[in-house]
């Protein structure tokens, strides 16, 4: 019996060590954001002098390189609009592909799959030229278009969910005289809450995480035109990192809080979505 209880202790110690490895960088992010020293602390894990000043500076004293309130506002705008448009697109495409039967549906699905495999980074520069042709570079509208216009391609997980809703529910609604629009809005959407939440959160988060596309599209040198990701990325470039590293950490913590909350909410749906789609493979 003794070996078994040893085993239990070992198991928990091992998990504890693993958890420590996973949490150390985040702890460092937190403590560095509370450091009075602005650069990278290379000698000790905890700051020599604690201070709340980074957070104050972040919101109250925007300067020529760090304008967090403006970044936050821009990202919020982009996130909100992208979220509305892409959620609508994803749900629409998923409904068409899952619940309706029409000529060319399967070839359209294969085509969209292949299209989705094309490295986004490659077409990025071409997207830039297309946007330029439409006069949308350097603007928030342009970024919203970029993040949401192609979102219809990401319908697969959602379709997987719609596939599990019994067709008989649609049939009976149809017999009662409902048209497809009504079935879509009154029958399918209410039954798909988990996947709708999943789609909404995912769509909202995407612009917060991306900095490559934003960097390419927004060529403005004025920090007040940037997004959070762009601005924070800029703070750790070689010439700035010595003076702004702890500010970067504070900014990282501030964006992480809402994202973490959304993520924890989504966690359940995340597991459902993945397995729901995978079981069918």
């Amino acid at each position: 019996m003794k070996t078994k209880s040893d085993n239990h202790v070992l198991r928990h110690v091992f998990l504890g060590i693993l958890a420590a490895i996973w949490l150390l960088p985040i702890l460092w992010l937190l403590v560095t954001s509370l450091s009075a020293y602005k650069g990278i602390n290379t000698m000790s894990f905890f700051p020599q002098k604690w201070s709340f000043d980074n957070y104050v500076q972040l919101f109250a004293r925007p300067d020529t390189v760090a304008n967090f309130p403006a970044w936050f506002k821009n990202s919020m705008l982009i996130g909100t609009f992208t979220c509305i448009i892409s959620t609508a697109f994803v749900l629409m495409v998923a409904y068409a592909m899952s619940c309706m039967r029409f000529d060319g549906r399967k070839s359209l699905m294969t085509f969209s799959m292949v299209l989705g495999m094309f490295p986004g980074v490659l077409s990025m520069i071409a997207v830039y030229f297309v946007m330029k042709l439409m006069g949308l570079t350097n603007s928030i509208t342009g970024l919203i278009v970029i993040y949401s216009a192609g979102s219809g391609l990401g319908y697969l997980i959602c379709k997987g969910f719609f596939d599990t809703i019994p067709a008989s529910m649609r049939e009976s609604a149809r017999i009662e005289g409902a048209n497809e629009l009504r079935i879509f809005i009154k029958v399918i959407i209410p039954l798909s809450k988990p996947i709708v939440v999943y789609t909404v959160i995912n769509a909202f988060l995407a612009p917060w995480m991306d900095f490559v596309m934003a960097k390419l599209m927004i060529r403005s040198k004025d920090p007040s035109d940037w997004t959070v990701a762009m601005g924070l990325y800029n703070l750790v470039q070689k010439n700035l990192v010595g003076d702004y590293f702890s500010l970067f950490c504070a900014g990282g913590i501030i964006v992480s809080i809402p994202i973490s909350i959304l993520f924890v909410l989504m966690q359940r749906f995340y597991v459902d979505g993945i397995t729901g789609g995978a079981v069918k493979g």
Binding site: P25, I26, L29, L232, Y233, G252, I259, Q267
Partner: peptide
Amino acid sequence: VIAITIPQFV
């Protein structure tokens, strides 16, 4: 899970 809730670029 906390580890993946922080944006990757951070």
